[in-house]
Amino acid sequence: MSYGIGMALVLAILAYVCILANLGPSLMWHESIIVGTITGLIVGDVQMGFTIGATLTLMSLGMWTYGGATIPDFMTGAILGTAFGALPGVGLEGGLAVAVPAALLMTQLDVLGRATTTLFIHGADKAVARGDVKAVTRWHLWGHLPWGLTRAVPVFLAIWLGAEPVTKFIEWMPDAFMKAMRLTGAMLPALGFALLLTMMPVKKYWPFAVIGYVLFAYLKMPMVGIALMAAAVGFLYINVKGVANRG
């Protein structure tokens, strides 16, 4: 089974809209859970969108575009992974096998998009020198073309042309490979957690991580309970510390 040109177009537009919704209004639609779920709705497999989206989100925990740095494009990864994963014969393992390499490869296009937009600010320089306010407006408002197209075009081509080769490839893969892929998917959140921990003062505050671990591992507390407990502990700590400093 494969997708038609119409589906390819719809998912390409989704990629375009989601990157813009993140860039401008900071709506975070590029988050894998959001874009994966929407893709799942479009291709008719919401659960696939949930799972691919959640796995990629967990991988990306400590990743952030600090100062405009390029990070793996999990948004495009989530769209392709969910769409291919929903095809019969591909499944979750196959979807992940597409999503992760796609997210990594897309970093090249991210750099291309960010570089190409430089042309737009040079256009604006000239418009400003002429005092042409309307032209400045155009240069800015069309500045998203390189951003959107570097996501939308690969999604369009991959969905339109890629479904058959991907399905064939996954079907040809031995079962042992797919089993290993499933284990990889379960293991990848470790990268997100570890990356996050490197950015936190673990040496100073490690007992708090132990509290969280004990709550779940020994006391079987549900996750919302842990989050509430975390808020209470954080609040108490700063207040008690404030009192101690005054005393």
């Binding site: 293991m187 957690f193 996050l196 969280g212 671990y213 842990i226 502990v233 954080g234």
Partner: peptide, 18 residues
Amino acid sequence: GATIMGLVVVGGFVPSIM
């Protein structure tokens, strides 16, 4: 305060998610 909150959550979620 938020760092501490984050660490408690991470401590609980590592075993839960994985």
